[in-house]
């Protein structure tokens, strides 16, 4: 069970990123091994299609849950097809570690 949290930086103290396709980093958290890994989003500054590229990456990684601020129509369509759980949070002042703590509770 892998969960991805969109993040503005590559540390646990970084703020949560409200954007999915254009998030700076993806924080991958493995619930079984409790391993945390940060992956840079190489498509964050692309002209278009960042959302579908990010979704492609998520499906490749075998992620089951994604926590982000919102998902665009292209990303949502793709992620829905692969039954990935989308979780929307609107508090941008939250840190990645705050969300992880919420999950570990």
């Amino acid at each position: 069970m892998k969960t991805v949290i969109t993040s503005t930086g590559n540390t646990l103290d970084s703020n949560f990123d409200l954007r999915f396709g254009r998030a700076a980093y993806f924080c991958v958290y493995d619930e079984e091994t409790e391993k945390i890994e940060f992956i840079e989003n190489i498509h964050s500054n692309d002209q278009g299609g960042a959302g579908s590229k990010a979704s492609e990456k998520m499906i490749e990684l075998g992620v089951t849950k994604i926590i982000s601020g919102d998902f665009g129509p292209k990303a949502m369509e793709l992620l829905d097809q692969f039954k990935i759980r989308l979780i929307l949070m609107s508090d941008e002042s939250k840190k990645v570690s705050d969300i992880l703590n919420l999950m570990k509770k």
Binding site: H43, D46, Q47, G48, G49, A50, S52, K53, S55, E56, I59, E60, L78
Partner: peptide, 8 residues
């Protein structure tokens, strides 16, 4: 243009 999505 990132128009193709391929997930092996």
């Amino acid at each position: 243009f990132n128009a193709i999505v391929v997930i092996p």
